[in-house]
Amino acid sequence: MILEIKNVVKQYRSKPFLFGKPDAGVTAVDGVSFSIEKGEVFGLVGGSGSGKTTLGRLTLKLEDFDTGEIRFDGMSVRDLKGPALKAFRRKIQLIPQDPYQSLNPYFSVYDSIAEPLVIHGIGNDEARGDLVKQALEMSGLAPAASYSSRYPHQLSGGQRQRAAIARAMILDPEFVIADEPTSMLDASISFSIFKLLSKIKREKNVAFLFITHDLAAARFFCDRIAVIHKGRIVETGPTKDVIENPKDDYTKTLINAQPRFSYT
């Protein structure tokens, strides 16, 4: 088991400084529990405002949660500090939602992808160059030399997302959180991104937490899925079972809302 989430609760409330009272707040994640095995692709499916993105941010320790426990590789994520936190950051990576915003506009593709190596002090310049080249080619940005010197605004949406994937994969993480990686892309490009992710999963045996609102994408990519609604998980199971035999009412609504080629 690589990730274990137990009863996690996250509330947002405005905490005033010095004066005023905190308000009632919004519960974004309300007692969520699930676990992900090594090399497994786990889908978290839900509508906007369901708390699925927040859960991803909590797992990455981009935000702190209120109660509950998140264990990654046996370590409690909440207590990570200093060198342990840095080691954690090497093992878990994020593929972001918006490829137009996730690369620093002042960084060339090479600098963006090499940055994690620089931060973790891996290799010298030459070794980094090799790794970046491999990562670019693995992500389908070949020949690497023609992409590495470009800036984000010189790339198309799909190319940017491939660069973001190269950056996420360069540290050889054990676990990747993909937060709606294709919601901003055209259908055929998102299909090729899914194919790329499937290839990475196969070749590197990486576990994924795939956050999406799109059941069809989850069906294509995930081994198991959990349906999340208003901060709670309403149904979990193997993807096929959940989609073909939904038990929960919300899951049923979600499935019925998918566009169908019904021609009526």
């Binding site: 994020l94 972001p96 915003q101 996730s102 690369l103 940055e115 994690p116 950056r167």
Partner: peptide, 17 residues
């Protein structure tokens, strides 16, 4: 709040960086 700052944090960048 821009995602590239989150991405830097996920990569392990220090606040100074």
């Amino acid at each position: 709040k821009r995602p590239f700052v989150d991405m830097a944090r996920v990569a392990g960048a220090s606040h100074i960086r």
